[in-house]
């Protein structure tokens, strides 16, 4: 049977992709951020997962406002990062796991999560940057597992509630654990933490709220479901709503987890950057 080993969280800021491309790992601005990753890579080296469920939010590459899915699940053989408007270097495709995707899609709809299935899905920095952070050289890293992208809408309100995001994760856990073949799975929750790019409040970062979220998500994620969506916009910033991805990830880890690693740094680009490794407890 498939088994979830743990959850990884990270910010997925586009500037990180450029910093990786330019090898700025020891640059004084970037070092405190990149130093948050080697302990997680060591854990991945030890456990060698077969599959990464990559929960991210599309930023206007895979989806437009003509049709905006609240929850979309990739069901493709491979995923390509395409030009997002600034001509970033194109990478070879990331291999998918469509047979697992369809099992998850069947199970989620059975559990009354009416999702959008995607046999083609261009993936943006939200998907790619985390893969590169956890598996350096990705997609050229031979240890990089196959992946399934799951995107939740944070582009246009109404966005999902924090409770719905956590419940999605819980259903995702049942879906993965019912997959009949032996698979070691990690779940990535990417995005955030606090940031706001638009409006007179651009540049808003809320360290106290970020640290509250990083604390509560370990042992008491239910407490975070009390936060309303407008409260999330107010406290995390307009784009800090990406924290929903972390809630989806956390739901998939079961009741009890152990925090193996945590890092928080301000600022990376306009954002409070959070990194965590949460290991599932049998």
């Amino acid at each position: 049977m498939a088994k979830i080993l743990g959850g990884l969280t990270t910010s997925h800021i586009p500037a990180v992709g450029n910093a990786i491309h330019n090898g700025l790992f020891d640059d004084p601005y970037w070092k405190p951020f990149f130093d948050g990753y080697p302990p997680i890579r060591d854990w991945l080296d030890e456990h060698k997962p077969d599959l990464a469920i990559n929960i991210y939010n599309d930023h206007g590459l895979g989806f437009f406002l003509d049709k905006m899915p609240t929850f979309a699940i990739g069901a493709a053989h491979e995923y390509r990062n395409e030009d997002e408007g600034w001509g970033i270097p194109q990478l070879p495709p990331f291999p998918g796991a469509p047979e697992v995707s369809w099992h998850i899609i069947e199970s989620m709809v059975e559990q009354e999560f009416d999702i959008t299935s995607c046999q083609e899905l261009a993936v943006d920095h939200g998907f790619v940057v985390p893969m590169q952070l956890f598996w350096p050289g990705a997609p050229g890293n031979s240890d990089m597992p196959r992946s399934i992208p799951i995107s939740a809408n944070t582009v246009q309100h109404p966005i999902p509630t924090l409770k719905r995001a956590l419940d999605f994760g819980k259903a995702l856990r049942r879906a993965i654990e019912s997959y009949p073949e032996d698979l070691k799975v990690v779940v990535l929750g990417t995005g955030g933490l606090s940031h706001q790019l638009d409006g007179e409040r651009a540049g808003f970062i809320n360290k106290e709220f970020d640290q509250y979220c990083m604390e509560k998500i370990v042992d008491d994620p239910e407490a975070l479901t009390k936060i309303s969506r407008m409260e999330l916009v107010e406290k995390a910033g307009a784009q800090g709503t990406e924290f929903l991805m972390w809630m989806m990830m956390r739901g998939a880890l079961g009741d009890k987890v152990v925090r193996r690693h945590s890092n928080y740094h301000i600022p990376i680009s306009n954002t409070g950057a959070g990194t965590m490794l949460l290991e599932c407890v049998e």
Binding site: G199, E200, M230, E234, A238
Partner: peptide, 15 residues
């Protein structure tokens, strides 16, 4: 939506 200073909530109206 109740107003948040310096913030436009991009909802159906804005869409």
């Amino acid at each position: 939506h109740s107003p948040i200073p310096g913030t436009t909530v991009f909802d159906g109206r804005m869409a």
